[in-house]
Amino acid sequence: MKYAYYPGCSLHSTATEYDATTRTVCQTLGVELEEIPDWNCCGATSAHATNHLLSLALPARDLAKAEQMGLDVVAPCAACYNRMAQTIHETKDNEVLRGRVSAVIGADYEGTAKAKSLLEVLAADVGPKVVEAKVQKPLKGLRVAAYYGCLLVRPPAVTGWDDAENPQSMDKLMTALGAETVDWSHKTECCGASLTVSRTDIVLKLTRDILDAAKAAGADALVCACPMCQANLDGRQGAVEKTYKTNYHLPVFYFTQLMSLAFGIEPYKLGFARHSIDPRELLHTKEIA
């Protein structure tokens, strides 16, 4: 199993621990990653909020490179994945639009490479059984709320690999690691990522709702698959507590960090020191690390 790897900008800045543990997990599971050479930013929400053609052209430049490599793309970031899947979806049966995109990027874009999220590759292509077989340190006693956020599973016409309202793929992976997952209401509620800088007040409210729901469901921690979700839920958790006079102390993991931990990788290699809510205390209490 080999993929063209698209880390995206966040995995080179705020989320280097997601990048590192993605590589670790893929190596352990025999998923080969070849980074797309000289990849550019997908444009994220800002591009599609600005100009439709721009929002297709930026991911298309990367997808055209993956075509040259003869590989499908895997993207760990939910936003990058969504923009790529959207580009493929919109251009797939539209030769005129593909032509326009090719003209803008100055390269042939055929639309032959698929784009998958890392969660899809590990949960569906590799599968929980293979994952379970690699577990050396089961995450016994850890109760997690699997948080998918908005862009991994929506809209279903574009994503379509897991249920848009009650996805299960991450829950199954966590169960395979020996952890427990909670049933809860906010699996796919948006954290408001694109407004995090400009309307922080809104993001604090949305983040509070998600943290409240996870806490009420009895979770010890949240698990996510998106650097923006992690930045809001972890990085802004202190501000939420201060604003709303609440107390959560809920660590927010990338699912690849927990996979690495269960695969027996030493905890100091997993980037926990970069979290605002340090998860090491919880892991210690649970005698996991």
């Binding site: 966040s10 930013c41 444009g43 994220a44 800002s46 600005t50 400009s198």
Partner: peptide, 26 residues
Amino acid sequence: ERSVAAFHRAFLNGVASGGRAYELGM
């Protein structure tokens, strides 16, 4: 919502100049 539009502009300026998002500059 001027601040939202300003964010998108600042974000895309970074991408347009270096090819990738530049959080601090943004």
